[in-house]
């Protein structure tokens, strides 16, 4: 097993920060930890559980400038804007990396590939730190993940006495570690992390039967229609697209075309030009969010649209709890099976 001491880690991170953009957990005030670009290891905090937001924003930024439009008299020139410098996201959790599987399937692997996401993905390395525990709202193990799952990372670090156990996962991870001071140790054992109770998740083709249940309108009744659950979600990817002016002179107008996170939970999300809104009710919108994750996404793109990070549970001001929802839908399904079995006999 490979081992990196605290001081080696610090030196390694400072070196990484020199050549690429280093993104790492940072205290942004009032105890909140966000993944943010940092100048060096001194700005990083290693005391955190789950960053407030997932790593999604560095592949699919909340505000992405797709291009700049330069307008001179009657001439227009478009300048594409792409990420140029490589970036390392350090300190993300395994579930955050798992979330990128869903984004990859949509933005990168489904034709036509999104150029901006694909470029960012190529230029990003992921150095995760295993969760020391499963926190109360975590249910990653119910969705194919684990607090110490290295699968979707380039390197996984696990906190051990005096430093970190190091697991390179990909070739990119190996290359990244080339400059790190790593020792080979034999007597290193990784902590055994207690698992939370499993949450039952119906298969994609079992969901449609429950689409018209009254449950959804009851669940939606307390929803505030804010965008919180979708913004903290590692896989939610709805966006809006708009032109915003940057500068305006008589001979030159600069405009940026940008895409910005949006949320299917917002009231006017579906309003079309004539004013028609095909999802005017809160229950319809919250249902869409969950069906997107567990039914549409796997059908259309392969992976599930949920990795069990539990963020939406923790932040929801009105206790719309995805685990409670999954349990309820499972119970409805069991009940349906029972009724059908009774009907047969």
């Amino acid at each position: 097993m490979m081992f990196m001491s605290h001081s080696s880690l610090t030196a390694w991170l400072d070196e990484l920060a020199g050549e690429r953009t280093l993104i790492a957990p940072r205290d942004v005030g009032r105890g909140h930890i966000h993944l943010r670009p940092v100048a060096g290891s001194s700005e990083i905090t290693l005391e955190y559980d789950r960053p407030d937001l997932s790593a999604k924003e560095f592949l699919f930024p909340h505000t992405e400038r797709l291009m700049q439009v330069e307008k001179r008299s009657d001439q227009v020139t478009l300048h594409d804007r792409f990420l140029e410098k490589g970036q390392v996201v350090f300190g993300l959790r395994p579930c955050d990396a798992h979330g990128l599987v869903a984004l990859d399937a949509l933005f990168r692997d489904r034709e036509p590939a999104d150029a901006h996401y694909t470029r960012r993905r190529q230029k990003t390395a992921l150095v995760g730190i295993a969760c020391p525990q499963m926190w109360e709202s975590c249910f990653c193990t119910s969705l194919g993940g684990a607090p110490d799952d290295p699968t979707h990372l380039d390197v996984l670090l696990t906190a051990v006495e005096g430093g970190y156990a190091v697991q390179p996962v990909t070739n990119q991870g190996e290359a990244l570690l080339a400059s790190a001071a790593i020792e080979e140790v034999t007597d290193l054992s990784l902590p055994d992390i207690p698992r939370n109770e499993q949450v039952p998740v119906l298969a994609a083709d079992q969901w449609p039967a429950h689409f018209d249940q009254e449950y959804w309108s009851r669940l939606g009744e307390r929803c505030l229609s804010c965008k919180l659950c979708t913004f903290v979600c590692p896989t939610c990817r709805c966006f809006d697209l708009r032109d915003e002016p940057v500068a305006s002179r008589t001979d030159l107008v600069l405009i940026e075309r940008m895409r910005v996170w949006d949320a299917c939970t917002a009231p006017n999300y579906r309003t079309i030009a004539g004013g028609h809104n095909s999802r005017p009710l809160k229950g319809q919108r919250i249902r869409n969010r969950y069906y997107c994750k567990f039914c549409y996404y796997p059908k259309d793109f392969g992976p599930l649209g949920c990795v069990g990070c539990g963020r939406c549970i923790d932040v929801c001001p009105v206790n719309i709890d995805i685990v409670e929802m999954l349990n309820t839908v499972y119970a409805m399904h069991q009940e349906r099976d029972t009724v059908e079995a009774e009907a047969e006999t």
Partner: peptide
């Protein structure tokens, strides 16, 4: 890309002691 959840996932579900809360 239309495809259902893989068999691995179903296997995984069967292993769990899933109970509705």
């Amino acid at each position: 890309q239309c495809r259902q959840l893989g068999g691995e996932f179903h296997h995984f579900l069967r292993l769990t002691t899933a109970r509705p809360c």
